[in-house]
Write a protein that binds this DNA or RNA. Structure first.
Lengths: 225, 225
DNA sequence: ACGCGAATATCAGAATCCTGTCAGGCCAGA
DNA sequence: TCTGGCCTGACAGGATTCTGATATTCGCGT
């Protein structure tokens, strides 16, 4: 779970509450970092304060909703109805007005999570052919043999194995490695892919798993032995 | 959608609001009838007032949650936190305290529905006759046999299969392949179409799928075997 | 049915773009 | 400071796209 709240004291109080409830919680203090983290890691839920430096919660919400279906719960000090409606319309899944009790936050979180958890039974480790990627553990194996991956390499693999077969452009992959939406004319992604192939492919010259889609980007071969 | 609210005046006001939003709405005035209706019909969402005759909203919620995963939104006049927590823990998906504005109700409903609707959205593969085009995967099949396409060829097919039967001019198709508006007097598109026909048509000389519209451009035959 | 001009199909070489790969510099953490 | 990872720019080989020229087909008027 990601908690984005710029008031450090309040953030810490909430974090303890959440951890006590059994939620692994990452805390950030501004919108930009929140966006970056959310793009790099797959959280089960984001708790976003509306008022934050650099990028406010509403902007983070709107931006992320374009890219993902992750659950988002907004916190606001303001109680104006318009803000509330705006938040929900932007794609937030719930909304809480300060001051609120930690118990209520926890209850709403439980409700949101129950809704998604009862639907897709997600297995902890993704698998495609002889390749497995375990996101929580950050481990990669090929034929059961563990592979050492750097952070960037893992981000690319994780993004791709979430939707095997789907084609990702370099820009999309950059989003997952760096979080920031930055244009890059360079060969960054290519280099990462090359390094990955050296690690996971039997013959890096003839990739079986990590395929290139000429003129577009890369994809994982969903139909691999 | 099922609306269970014992105050007839308020029920009618909400019903109008919901209908205006495009929701087919059934109204009942007590918990027993609500339960009965919900068991008979499959609603996309139940809006339950907590205070109702015969069976209150919390009881309806608890009972139904044993039997189904239907979305439930609770309305309550009481604002005590305990009631709120109870409602959510019983399995409600959202909770609204009176007085609330109809706009807020509508916004929350939209949020709840969006979440479930975006879930079973997994088959974005277009199909016309024996041809299928899967955009995220960038795959093309004819009679289930995968076809190799270049980026430009795929762009043309994808554009056309989004609106089968519609005629595209060469200029429009160029826009899809090159992205930018660029004048071309040449035979570029014709060449791509020819290459495509070789790949997807049984007899490229007598196209069945990718038809030419003399003097205008090309189209996909929407009525293909 | 026939012929004519215009539009399209086809071909192959040229021009362009894309990727794989390498080496060097930069940056942050140990 | 040192190390490992990341980014950048350059280059070559290869795939794709474009460009003309030429052949074929179409629409239409006779």
């Amino acid at each position: 779970m990601l908690l984005a709240e710029d008031d450090e004291r309040q953030a810490e109080a909430l974090r303890r509450y959440l951890v006590a409830e059994g939620h692994e919680t990452t805390v950030v203090h501004d919108g930009e970092t929140a966006l970056q983290q959310a793009r790099q890691q797959q959280f089960d839920l984001l708790v976003l304060d509306v008022m934050m430096p650099k990028l406010d919660g509403l902007q983070v919400c709107r931006t992320l909703r374009q890219e993902s279906d992750v659950l988002m719960l907004m916190l606001t000090a303001r109680s104006s109805e318009d803000d509330l409606l705006l938040g929900l319309d932007l794609g937030a899944d719930d909304y809480l007005t300060k001051p609120f009790s930690p118990r209520e936050l926890v209850a709403r979180i439980r409700t949101l999570l129950r809704r998604v958890r009862t639907k897709p039974q997600e297995s902890p480790a993704h698998r495609v052919g002889r390749l497995t990627v375990d996101e929580p553990r950050r481990t990669v194996t090929v034929d059961g043999i563990p592979i050492d991956c750097t952070a960037g390499e893992f981000a690319i693999l994780a993004a791709m194995i979430r939707q095997p077969g789907r084609v990702f452009t370099r820009t999309q992959l950059l989003l997952h490695t760096r979080g920031i939406d930055r244009e890059s004319t360079g060969r960054t992604i290519d280099v990462h892919v090359m390094n990955l192939r050296r690690k996971i492919e039997a013959n890096p010259r003839r990739p079986q798993l990590l395929l290139t889609v000429y003129g577009v980007g890369y994809k994982l071969n969903a139909a691999a032995p």
